[in-house]
Write a protein that binds this DNA or RNA. Structure first.
Lengths: 396, 396
DNA sequence: TTGTTATGTTCGTATCAAGAACATAAATGG
DNA sequence: CCATTTATGTTCTTGATACGAACATAACAA
């Protein structure tokens, strides 16, 4: 318990509460509403906002009057305030975006890459092209687990335990990095289908299944920062050997690899994704073999979700990637199998299974969230508020 | 965000921090150490402790001097301070204990019961026999899930969705209640083998498996307060039908029921526990059939733990109940099967699998923890500190 | 006996949020 | 068109908090 609590910390805490409220709100709100929301007086709210405006974190704009009363102002991000950059680093492409307080995303640049760590240099160059003193923190979404926060393991790129520092190199802005599946879940939890849920799960279905357990708006990270490999539990009774080194993984029956395998093709990270799309398309058009593959996929998905719901009791489960299509095409089958595998006493309150609403922007949005979490941490904010007005914001 | 943050709340927060430190510490510490621990000045510490002494929460006793310096005092629970009562309600027995700040347990009374809800009246009478104005909160451990905190479901007593209010009846002190497996895990996390682990799991193996995911010293509760049924995931490939209504549950292969079934006996909640002990005993003495049953049990346990570790990445896993015996008798087999089912890249850092150290006192200890959590919540503490010195402590 | 050391105590100060009273800018309604 | 109503902004005072510095105290050590 190192963090002492002094009057100054009290102020910081209230300012963090205010900024978080602005960041998390679906719609901008006024200063008076903020006072009510935080349970503080209008005078205190005025003081807080004043300092935050000085520090170029908030800005006040006239609010169109609604009814009687003295007109007030809306609290919006400061036009010259700090920005988070977010990177979504994928299999063969990357995207760089800038994200303001409140979550508004501006895509800056994107590109393809050659699957070697040189891509990081490429991305860093892009960051440099758009660099501004306003850049305060960079959030980075990558596929693959990041052990202990620094050892990167991306099997489909053949990167095995790559040391993060060595590939990132020097010259990066302050950076926070996490797994894309987890960040996609975080995005749903903060700004998507799982908003407001205390306990929820998200699964991204691509070649296989990656997921995360979301508790009160935060993604569970695990003891070595590698939680979330729900796809590698033996939930469907498969006896095949998985690329992960274990037999019987759930992922062997759900996802693009599973679809492809049913057609005698080699599962793997090549053209599998297009083939899977093709199979779904054929299933939609009544192709019998494709429909069976789709059914098997959906049934296995539902079974696994039921099993996980028994253990973790989520209020809702959202899906992304192929999961969106699976819900669209086979919702009933998924729900039926989920129900079948729920303990009997849970069947009157099954978890909602919903398509994610953040969509393909999930990892990028999640990366922005962790970057803003870092910016809005009390420690960092304290610094930013100390030198109010004098030097320009952004990292030192 | 309803909780405002005023100067008074600041004081309460620091007092909570201090009390929690005392409650959680393995050894009592001095006032000066407390000041360093919390990062506050000695003068502030003196003020905090003074008020807490007034409120009969803390007491100062002379500390034997260690080396130079002015002698100081140890912070200990106030001899007339609030007490938590804890109840461990089991299949056919119950135990009532009194627990002071810091976690010291005094057993007050125990008894058997007839498996009908009348037992609650019995327990309430016992509480009344020991009632004192110092009683501040009662923590209650029961088997079976408690949906939404008020619907009790104990299958082996034939209690199906019993409304908690109706069985508890009137006249109880302020009460918090939770599931025994979850509370046993909480106990290990706070005071046992999982102390200090950020992410951990605990499994209580009895007839079947109940468990809990422990995050930063708190047990995960789920969206409907019924998380933790890890035993009802299909982790071992069984095809049997489980009493829970699903096929293939992990619990079908691990625990007393699984042992008993191997001997052609009907699994269930009768004399199964003694029979299971008997089987373990025979296995220890070299009985081949019993050894095979034990091996199968241990192997299934290990396999399931590996699968769960893939998903949730615990630093450590503790076991209680039969799990203690399984570790004692077949540690290698459990660990080997766990490792086999861990994704390859995790195998150099497998979760530690350890016997719980709180032992049979787990549910009782956990019940005391949630009771003290309630007492030490800022809201309740505020009340207790308002009327300092005037009226006696305890619930109004 | 005289320092040394760790702790307790006292006092003044800066900061913070609350509360009350007042000021202000719209909409409302005759 | 003007007084009223209403919601908000602003100002000032007040009580409470933790901090820092200086000093007091009680042991131990040389």
């Amino acid at each position: 318990m190192p963090q002492s609590m002094t009057s100054a910390d009290l102020r910081i805490r209230n300012q963090v509460r205010l900024l978080r409220a602005v960041h998390d709100a679906a719609e901008p709100f006024t200063r008076a509403e903020a006072a009510r929301l935080l349970g503080i007086g209008r005078n205190t709210a005025a003081a807080l906002v004043g300092e935050l405006e000085q520090a170029r974190l908030l800005h006040e704009v006239p609010a169109e009057s609604s009814g009687r009363g003295r007109p007030t102002t809306l609290l919006v991000p400061h036009p010259d305030g700090p920005l988070a950059f977010a990177v979504d680093f994928r299999e063969d492409t990357w995207t760089l975006a800038s994200v303001a307080l409140g979550g508004a995303i501006t895509e800056l640049e994107s590109g393809e890459h050659d699957r070697t760590p040189a891509v990081f240099t490429q991305i860093r160059a892009a960051v440099a092209r758009h660099e501004t003193p306003r850049l305060a923190m960079l959030g980075f979404a990558t596929s693959g687990p990041i052990r202990d926060g620094h050892r990167l393991h991306i099997s489909h790129l053949g990167w095995d335990e790559v040391e993060l520092d060595s590939v990132l190199g020097e010259g990066w802005p302050p950076t926070v990095i996490d797994n894309d599946a987890r960040l996609a879940g975080l995005a749903e939890s903060r700004r998507g289908a799982l908003r407001g849920k205390g306990t929820a799960m998200h699964f991204h279905i691509d070649f296989d299944i990656g997921g995360t357990l979301l508790l009160a708006g935060d993604a569970q990270r695990g003891g070595h920062n590698i939680a979330g490999e729900f796809g590698h539990m033996p939930l469907t009774g498969s006896t095949l050997e998985c690329m992960c080194g274990v037999r019987g993984c759930w992922s062997l029956d759900v996802g693009a690899n599973a679809l492809v395998r049913r057609f005698g093709k080699q599962p793997g990270y090549g053209t599998g994704r297009e083939l899977a799309r093709e199979i779904l398309h054929r299933a939609e058009n009544g192709d019998r073999e494709a429909m069976e593959a789709l059914d098997a996929n959906a049934a296995s998905l539902g079974k696994g979700l039921g099993a996980l719901a028994n253990a973790l009791d989520p209020e809702a489960i959202s899906l992304s990637g192929l999961g969106i299509d699976l819900i669209r095409l086979r919702r009933n089958l998924i729900e039926e199998r989920c129900l079948e595998n729920l303990m009997a006493f849970r069947r009157d309150e099954p978890p909602q299974i919903v398509p994610g609403t953040v969509g393909a922007a999930g990892p990028l949005t999640g990366a922005a969230e962790i970057a803003w979490d870092a910016i809005l941490a009390p420690a960092g904010l304290k610094e930013r508020l100390q030198g109010r007005g004098s030097q320009p914001p952004g990292r030192p």
